[in-house]
Design a binder for these strands. Structure first.
Lengths: 341, 341
DNA sequence: TTGTAAGCGTTATCAA
DNA sequence: TTGATAACGCTTACAA
């Protein structure tokens, strides 16, 4: 059965499509009785607006593009939920894309969103992204872009970031306080703001404690369980590190596995702190000390920033909001367990 | 700057929009030289097709709707990734929605997808969904729907399900073999096919081993860590259960927490088996025995089923594909550890 | 309060 | 091989 259009409703009622359109849109310039009849008939015919036609005519759509590296990362899926919670009540839907951490897929996804004429884009870059030309093309076409977490100031528009520096600083300071002195740093690409900031926090904490910085125990490009494992094995074989500050929880699990495989104990021999507070962090044994990011808050802020741009119809300020993080001290980083309460 | 259209390209080249459209679409009925020039000019002007207009004109869109209870469930996010891997190369994009396990949100999402004129829908129902009228409206309008995991045969079209029965049967049989005899079952709503099948598998295994079925130790509507915890506390207080077969890993973590809180040990005193193999299952201590679902395979099958319907332009058969599952025996269910290899 | 008519950007049909 | 034209379903000046 062909789908009902406003023309069908108009014909059935002996009015014109314009009237039906107005009635359905809640335009006050239509008689109450007419509006009633239109709605009844629409219901009867199972009419559902064709938003494709509507978007084309209006020159704008109610779809917002959301582009994240991976939807199955706890952090990102929570940001998405928060964004939905702001956008859905405002009448917007999300077209969600993943880059799978590949810049090529990120470019493709941006194109898809652009071609679909999304009203705006909320995004976090892939870990490979160092060039932002593909994003600039979008902002130049007046599509507002809000960046979160993995951001770059080259792209105009608001940015919402975690307080990565402070999070890392607190984590490393905590390790030092716990008695560890030779602290390795396992992180991602240092060309990404997120890892750069964590690296700076790490360095700052070491410096503050007069612990000399050693570039040999800083491992870049290791954010998965597997790479974390491999690199930890290597470091444990070749150096005398006694702690790991990992820029992610996944690599932290690999690191812990490596430590255990070497016959060492966490936290007694080696301390470990992660970053992100993935759901498994508190289920592990030992429970993983990590830095909690407020994904929900971040999603709300990013979505609100976009809504503001759209309603005010300007490009949006080039501001960066910083969302505070929290160090969750659990078992993997506390050497001396004094009694069990 | 206004976005370039095919008219801009046509004007710049002194040809008509039709020619440009054909050239861009790869229509062979256009001279090679013209095609060249069109592509060059398109590139120069930064032309990106307006798929909104294209969809309206063609009467179909290249967007597929994907509706899942929660994108941050490991299982669902992997299904999504697999679906993307089939659909993207075929030129389709995903409009992803979550129901958050609420039937009201599921209905809303279905409307959104319908209004956006998606070419098809791949979905898994919310746990609350018992009435399928909102889906039938969609299938009646000839929008193909492929259900996966949480499915119902009332809805016409292909279904892809896990072999929940066998998974549950293997899990419970394994518990029995490990020496447990009073096995509780912590599950979701029994009106959902997934939990119904697991319940049947549980009953079958008990029956096979001549263990009397006891309805008092079957707990419905407990799939979160919190409810799993609460119900386990209750059962441990009021019964003499010595094992739990949980229909999900999240509830299993709550159950284990409850057992430990009671001063009992897993697996020595109480055995626990989960379902789903969430990533934390192998990171927990004790490592959780669970049933692995092949989310990836399921996603591929669902996506291929939809592609088949679309290309063949029929409604799709009312068939159910069953994807095999695998019992992963780890630590939480094996009483007698005889030596460490 | 309602109708008329034009147009959003594309594609498909028919004709040249 | 290309052009002219209409149409997809809707919204919105403008007119009545």
């Amino acid at each position: 059965m062909r789908r009902a259009t406003i023309i069908d409703i108009a014909n059935a009622l002996g009015v014109t499509p314009s009237t039906v359109s107005r009635a359905l849109a809640g335009n006050p310039r239509v008689k109450e009785g007419t509006r009633q009849k239109v709605h009844e008939k629409a219901m009867e015919l199972g009419y559902q607006q064709n938003v494709v036609a509507s978007s084309l005519r209006k020159g704008r759509s109610d779809t917002i593009g959301m582009l994240v590296p991976r939807i199955n990362r706890n952090f990102f899926s929570h940001v998405i939920s928060a964004v939905e919670e702001v956008l859905n009540p405002a009448g917007y839907n999300l077209l969600i894309c993943q880059s799978n951490e590949r810049v090529s897929k990120e470019k493709q996804a941006i194109q898809v969103l652009f071609k679909n004429r999304v009203a705006g884009i909320i995004m976090s870059h892939s870990i490979e992204t160092v060039d932002f030309e593909h994003i600039l093309q979008v902002t130049e076409a007046k599509v507002p872009v809000v960046q979160f977490d993995r951001v770059n100031s080259i792209v105009p528009g608001p940015r919402v970031v975690n307080d990565n520096f402070t999070g890392a600083y607190m984590a490393v300071k905590h390790l030092i306080k716990s008695g560890y002195t030779k602290i390795a740093h396992v992180t991602g690409s240092l060309s990404v703001n997120v890892y750069q900031e964590r690296f700076k926090g790490y360095q700052y904490a070491l410096n503050e404690a007069n612990i000399p910085f050693d570039a040999n125990i800083v491992i870049e490009d290791a954010i998965t369980r597997e790479t974390g494992f491999d690199q930890a094995i290597r470091l444990l074989d070749s150096t005398n590190v006694d702690a790991f500050f990992c820029a992610g929880d996944f690599s932290a699990t690999g690191v812990i596995q490596a430590i255990l495989d070497k016959g060492l104990k966490v936290p007694e021999d080696i301390g470990v702190v992660g970053f992100a507070n993935e759901p498994f962090a508190e289920l592990m044994s030992p429970k993983l000390t990590t830095v909690e990011q407020n994904a929900y808050d971040m999603g709300l802020r990013a979505a609100n920033a976009l809504m503001k741009i759209i309603s005010e119809n300007n490009g949006g300020d080039n501001v960066e909001e910083v969302v505070p993080v929290r160090l969750l001290v659990r078992e993997s980083s506390v050497k001396s367990v004094n009694g069990n309460s």
